[in-house]
Design a protein around this nucleic acid. Structure first.
Lengths: 336, 336
DNA sequence: CTGAAAGCGCTTACAG
DNA sequence: CTGAAAGCGCTTACAG
């Protein structure tokens, strides 16, 4: 492979010093620091030689890499993929590249990724944290490393967050089912011990209680690891256990749970909308094609991504961190 | 923000030279180059100080960054998101980080991204090329820059490719509809002038011709830019134009076209499976939840990703490029 | 207006 | 077994 050409090559070609070339190529030749003709000449040679600056060298020298690390739970999940898309598009506007990585909800992996990303000298991090990732992230926070947590948060950790009001979103969703005359509303949530999920559950509980519809047996906890089996067990118990009165509504607290749940119900002949109403978090392509569309909670994905980038870049540029929790609001797909 | 600690800090702490620290930390202290006690001591201090090597500096010095650039058309498309997921997981095993970027099918954007990524000193590129991206990529090929094109290819450009046999996949899909007694099979494809799409069309044409079912009016070209409008126009023409005999089968040459198409048909009350059979490229979550599932062509996504990484790393390590086109085979979802 | 020099953090021949 | 030195490509204060 041919050697990439450097500032030095250009300097030699023109017969001038590296310093001057650097000035010109960084557009710092205004304010009369370099003669007009010289600047022109340098630019021409740089162009002819197809010069591309070496970001590694620049990063090393400047102490910043113009790179942001993004850590999500799973890039193949459309919610995170969309988030990643908008983060990248927006970060690019400010001249930042984004390195996207996955934890697959593993705390060990989070720790490892953090090391790798920091080794790569990222200027900041946007992190969808894992259940027990707090210690690792706390260390970074102590060092004032620029970062913003996205989608999920640790209540006891003071740092920057961009999240949505899960409690309110959940209430709205459950209320929607109540308005549709549902009397026995089930909740399907993850066992994950993070407040975004607890808030969704709390929103459910408060709303059904207020309507006098609370029944503990209708709350089903799903483990991310054994999602398929857990959902089947839970649905079997709700719909095919003679002892139980069937639910007439289901609130799926995440999209992945909804997808698995709907699939199994479909398989078992439980008709959504007819036998039981459903509502869930986040939109899926699947919903548009169902016999009767499932309404869902729409998180403002582009705004979440942009805001995370804004908050992060602000930290990087200012060099200081003012802990803050930005809360956005979701709305129902039926409100559109 | 606290300064990151460097090899120098460790060296001073231990009272020793940078060189020795570097040797130890890179596990080059075997073969009796450094005394056992000294090595232990250095490792301990490095650990206590929480040392993280600076990849920028190492990359600059070694002339490689252990980073791979991945360019896809759209990370929010599940096909590419899955591909990205597997590429990243697999590349990580070899110690490579992956920078993921999107072209949104724009040639101009491809050129720009190429510059950015090369500026970041990526050691190699995995590229899903755009329609007219050939000149830009050709330049890299001429320089023997390590790269592999994925999913799509330029027939006149000798370089490394990992693709699937689109012709065969398409034939199988169309044959499936013929086996289901379809007599009027429509094709929905993109206008994009790249052979992967042409092959899909050719597979369709050859198969319907062989069965004596060819009718030019059943071929519909969709523009990526105006996908929504184009699909509506095409479907309206097929199903709601009194002059035309309706199709009884549709082959959607991509997943995005299928999704838009199925949605519109649903909206207009055209019943898939009952009124018209459908089949398409790539699986979508949506299919599991439809009244009658749409069969699809399953590309071997994990294998495609892994192979691309293998081929690329091989180039990087060997320092030479042997142009090759690896072709994988897709199968129908009904074959599972 | 332009140049010489230092230094970012690392690795690697070369000396001893 | 360990150290001194050079150099990767860049930017930036300092001199002139």
């Amino acid at each position: 492979m041919k050697k990439r050409i450097s500032i030095k090559t250009i300097a030699q070609e023109v017969g001038i010093s590296n310093a001057t070339v650097s000035l010109v190529l960084n557009d710092k030749d205004k304010e009369g620091r370099v003669s007009r003709e010289m600047a022109e000449k340098i630019r021409k040679v740089a162009k002819d030689l197809n010069y591309e600056p070496n970001h590694l060298a620049r990063g090393l020298r400047m102490g910043k890499s113009q790179t942001i690390g993004l850590i999500v739970a799973d890039i193949s999940n459309p919610f995170f993929a969309n988030l990643a898309f908008h983060i990248q598009e927006y970060a690019e506007k400010f001249g930042y590249s984004v390195i996207i990585t996955n934890t697959n909800e593993s705390d060990a992996k989070l720790v490892k990724i953090l090391d790798v990303l920091i080794g790569h000298q990222v200027d900041g991090l946007i992190i969808v944290p894992t259940e027990h990732g707090k210690p690792a992230i706390e260390e970074l926070v102590k060092k004032d490393f620029p970062l913003v947590l996205l989608d999920r948060w640790y209540p006891e950790l003071q740092t920057c967050y961009v999240v949505i009001d899960n409690y309110q979103a959940s209430k709205t969703a459950v209320q929607h089912l109540i308005n549709k005359k549902c009397k026995r509303i089930a909740l399907f949530g993850y066992t994950i011990d993070l407040p975004h999920m607890q808030e969704r559950k709390r929103g459910y509980v408060d709303t059904v209680k207020k309507a006098g519809l609370f029944d503990e047996n209708l709350i089903k906890d799903i483990n991310y690891i054994s999602i398929d089996a857990d959902i089947k067990t839970a649905l079997d118990d709700l719909f095919f256990n003679e002892k139980n009165e069937k639910p007439d509504g289901i609130f799926f607290a995440t999209n992945s749970i909804a997808l698995h749940g709907l699939r199994y119900m479909f398989e078992r002949g439980v008709k959504v909308s007819k036998d039981v109403k459903a509502i869930c978090f986040d939109k899926s392509d699947a919903f548009d094609l169902m016999e009767s569309p499932v309404p869902c909670v729409l998180q403002p994905i582009p705004e979440m991504g942009k805001l995370a980038v804004d908050v992060l870049i602000n930290q990087i540029v200012k060099g200081t961190v003012i802990p803050s929790k930005v809360e956005l609001f979701a709305k129902l797909s039926t409100e559109e």
